[in-house]
Design a protein around this nucleic acid. Structure first.
Lengths: 174, 174
DNA sequence: ATTTATGCAAAGAATTTGCATTGTA
DNA sequence: TACAATGCAAATTCTTTGCATAAAT
């Protein structure tokens, strides 16, 4: 599946378009590492640099390929370990679009947002909608919950792929 | 993790409370099977009966245990195959709450709904909110998408578990 | 030096599948 | 009797881990 991330204008609230600053990322990761007595390494640097240079939503698998095109000497395990580290440091966040693998994206300079996923071509469009967020909080409160996080994904056909030919499949609830 | 499903009153729209009719389920499955030239079997019947007698959200694993308490001679593979069949027939639907395994619930007499998941005790509360649904459709349309399905899960602490002691973890975006 | 990071291969966990055999219509 | 369903174990897929070794502070 080809996954393309498109950040589009959102009439309700534009997602910031400024690219994550590599300087900023590097500094934040360095301090995170220093604070915990961890160590830097060639692999960590390479993986991090490639990750933040990659737009959209990458899987560990894809990241391994990309990193190796730059530095052959990086193992799969280290990529997994580094992604985990980036997640813990708050620099990256993971998503599961139900493909059976986890996808990662930069969390630097990127406030919360949700996703529209094209079931035909795999395109992923990000969006943010304060009104939906507000309603979610209201619903949760009504049930005595205090929401810590949520996940919202809309699956359907994007403009380019047009309407489904057959009827929408059912069964798999979503 | 103990998962308890609680169907609560929803001020915006009550979820129907009528239990799925076993007669109805049996008939619908039978016709689905007949239409496709498939065959019934002791295992299929047992799994289906136990599944629809189980409230809430079961994993394949849990279902295997339950079915085996009634009939030892049911394999894991058959449970997986039967759940898949129930999904295809529209009688059951699957959900992934990010636990690394798929959970299934009856889709008979149960219109679309979303879930609130307690990150502490695992309790799952269902809810439906037309306004959120409407906004989702609006957002999608705005991006040229035609929504076929969606998934919305709110994660947080339920009333019984109270607020988190530490600070909410970050990194793992949701 | 001390402690963390890495590579590799083995281990896991959930789910699927090939195939000989059993069961159903 | 034909063809679908089952059991079982092997295979898959994604991810994690144990451990000896390399590297960083």
């Amino acid at each position: 599946v080809i996954v393309i991330t498109v950040i589009t204008m959102n009439p309700l609230r534009d997602l910031p378009r400024r690219a994550p600053s590599w300087q900023d990322v590097r500094a934040r990761l360095a301090s995170y590492i220093a604070e915990r007595g961890l160590k830097q390494s060639r692999q960590r640097d390479a993986i991090t640099e490639v990750f933040f240079a990659t737009p959209g939503h990458v899987s560990a698998d894809e990241l391994v390929l990309r990193v190796r095109s730059v530095d052959k000497r990086v193992s799969v395990a280290t990529v997994y370990r580094t992604l985990k580290l980036l997640g813990e440091s708050g620099l990256a966040s993971s998503r599961d679009f139900g493909e059976g693998q986890t996808r990662w994206e930069s969390a630097v300079g990127r406030p919360h947002h949700d996703h529209l996923v094209c079931t035909q071509c795999g395109k992923i469009v990000e969006f943010a909608n304060d009104e939906i967020e507000r309603l979610q909080a209201t619903v949760a409160r009504r049930h005595g919950f205090h929401v810590e996080s949520h996940r919202l994904e809309l699956y359907g056909r994007c403009g380019d792929c047009g309407p489904a030919r057959g009827r929408a499949r059912d069964g798999e609830g979503r």
